[in-house]
């Protein structure tokens, strides 16, 4: 008897069907870089609600807030870099409509790492003396048991129900490559989550790599629950080295917040009913894949 070979391929809609109201969902990438936007748009088109979102936030956070999907937000920042502050994030904060748990960027890394290591906390000086301690009232300090007796923040583990990540390439077994200049912290999101769904610009039968390319495999397939073929799936954020962020699209998204019914119109006309109609707004997949990487 032959065992069934692994096949983790799913559609974005099948991923969303596995999500539940109230879940804690970590989203990989960083600001306007390598966000799993096809998966996020599938959430925007779904009735999911009351989510806790954990992210180095970019436009996905603003969109999920605008769509009323988020009850609680755990973040170090929400920014599109070229457009420093996300307008829907600002609106939600200024209305007090989201439970905002602001962290230092490194503390977010530490919380995910603790979850991945299956320990309750990791100690650090970062956060002491700052309002991290007051806006996260459950945070506690710990005293070093050694001769130094130093008092440190015990950064609690941030355990995720689900992580949503975007990769450059993947295969049906769940092997992934995260290419481009910076992998950010996707591997920590992967190891902190009970289930991990990865969208990728290409999905192959089985990756067959040379040694240099294999180094771009940042987390092991045992952490990958499902793989979604999503060409251009990070748009309007970047997916280096394949395509850069779409500054015009980010600007149009930000500008939509100026109008009273801005989000409703953006949801209907841009997010639309499916990815084909979404990409048609930006002259199609070929144009998205041709977006140049940004220069600083």
């Amino acid at each position: 008897m032959t065992a069934t070979p692994l096949d983790k391929r799913l559609t974005a809609e099948e991923v969303v069907a596995r999500l539940r109201d109230g879940m804690t969902i970590g989203i990989g990438g960083w600001g306007p870089r390598r966000k799993p936007m096809t998966l996020v748009r599938a959430i925007l088109r779904s009735p999911l609600k009351d989510l806790t979102i954990v992210a180095y936030g970019g436009p996905e956070v603003g969109m999920l807030l605008a769509a009323g999907k988020v009850r609680k937000l755990i973040y170090g920042f929400v920014s599109m870099d070229v457009i420093p502050a996300d307008p829907y994030f600002r609106k939600a904060r200024q209305a007090g409509s989201v439970e905002a748990r602001e962290l230092d960027e490194g503390l977010l890394q530490w919380g995910l790492r603790a979850a991945g290591m299956r320990v309750p906390f990791l100690p650090t000086r970062t956060g002491l003396g700052s309002d991290v301690m007051t806006v996260n009232p459950e945070f506690r300090t710990v005293t070093s048991p050694y001769a130094d007796g130093e008092v440190l923040l015990a950064m609690p583990a941030i355990r995720l129900d689900v992580a949503l990540l975007h990769a450059t390439r993947a295969d049906r077994l769940g092997n992934t490559l995260t290419q481009g200049p910076d992998p950010f912290f996707d591997e920590l999101f992967a190891r902190a989550a009970d289930a991990v769904y990865v969208s990728a610009d290409t999905v192959e039968d089985q990756l067959a790599l040379d040694a240099d390319t294999a180094k771009d495999n940042r987390y092991e397939r045992c952490f990958v629950t499902g793989v979604v073929h999503a060409p251009g799936g990070a748009h309007p954020t970047s997916s280096g080295p394949l395509y850069g962020w779409d500054f015009k699209a980010l600007k149009a998204y930000a500008a939509s917040a100026d109008a009273e019914d801005g989000w409703a119109r953006y949801r209907t006309t841009v997010i639309g009913a499916d990815e084909a109609s979404y990409q048609a707004n930006f002259s199609g997949l070929d144009a998205i894949m041709a977006l140049p990487m940004p220069v600083f």
Partner: peptide, 14 residues
């Protein structure tokens, strides 16, 4: 409920 919300703490505490 800030009057003006900006980015968040980023890396400032660390």
């Amino acid at each position: 409920k800030p009057k003006i919300a900006m980015l968040g703490m980023r890396g400032l505490p660390g």
